[in-house]
């Protein structure tokens, strides 16, 4: 089974001065599956994300990503843009980070930068308008059109991204990440701020990405209806430590998870205190 992990996080720790945000965390995300990372506020979920996507350099531990063809990358050794360019890990942000002054289509075109740079012969072929460049540009526009259709924004392709409604911006950011043709898609709270209908269409979109493209997804989410509906596997963090790692149904019944989210009854506290002799 170890071969089937697209992402293996091993003993990952991240310290900010004296604060241990993530402590000796190990988990794996399976290929072609949706893995959710949940936990109460401040549990260290986004820190894990930032370590995986290269925005933080982990204090210790390894993060190994293995492509379908068996090529493997140590993500903690790659720096920021190379993780997306070489290791093919795409991400979205908790607070949307689109290019607001560019159109929806342009946002998706920027995401295909590296492929287009090669096609334009590092700009020189593109400058003289070589036919190979024109072909590459047209196919990039077609890919953008495909994703705009997938997220239902084809009508608004030429509108500025900053003018789109909030829910559309969330979906556009996911489409933009998908335009980099990633092996692993990391979504940081994609359902935050969405209403019930928008959340449902988001779940649908993520399931279709998994089914049609076979892209593995790692997501942080607070909306339990989304998490329980679409995840194949859930990892629960609390205070930077993993407290559970199982399928959705098992997580739902796990007393430790319930305690982390809801606290424990008073008599249970008493029982623990007696055990510890307090």
């Amino acid at each position: 089974m170890a071969d089937n992990h697209i992402l293996a996080v091993d003993n990952l720790s991240m310290r900010f001065g004296g604060i241990v945000a993530v402590n000796e965390l190990s988990f794996a995300a399976q290929r072609g599956k949706i893995t959710a990372l949940i936990g109460p506020n401040g549990a260290g979920k986004t820190t894990v994300f930032n370590c995986i996507t290269g925005f933080y350099k982990p204090t210790s531990g390894t993060i190994r990503l293995t492509h379908d063809d068996g090529k493997s990358f140590q993500l903690q050794r790659l720096n920021d843009f190379r993780i997306s360019k070489i290791a093919k890990v795409a991400r979205t942000f908790q607070n949307i980070r689109l290019f607001p002054g560019m159109t929806a289509l342009e946002n998706l075109m920027v995401a295909q930068h590296n492929a287009l740079m090669r096609a334009s012969g590092l700009t020189f072929l593109g400058l003289i308008g070589a036919p190979s460049w024109r072909k590459a540009e047209n196919s990039a526009i077609e890919l953008s059109r495909f994703w705009l259709k997938q997220i239902g924004l084809l009508e608004r392709a030429d509108d500025a991204a900053g003018n789109l409604p909030y829910g559309d911006q969330r979906r556009l950011e996911i489409a933009r990440a998908m335009c980099t043709e990633p092996a692993l898609l990391c979504l940081d709270e994609p359902a935050a701020g969405l209403n019930a209908r928008e959340s449902a269409s988001l779940s649908e979109l993520l399931l279709s990405i998994r089914a049609d493209r076979g892209t593995s997804i790692l997501l942080i989410e607070h909306d339990m209806s989304v998490v329980m509906e679409i995840s194949d596997h859930i990892v629960v963090l609390d205070y930077g430590v993993k407290i559970a790692d199982a399928a959705p149904q098992a997580i739902r019944d796990d007393p430790k998870v319930i305690a982390a989210y809801l606290g424990v009854e008073d008599d249970e506290v008493d029982a623990v205190e007696q055990e510890l002799g307090l």
Binding site: F55, S84, A90, R97, F99, M102, V110, H113, A177
Partner: peptide, 14 residues
Amino acid sequence: EALREDEVACRALG
């Protein structure tokens, strides 16, 4: 232009 709009997003896109 993307760099002018958001540098962090640029890095996330490789």
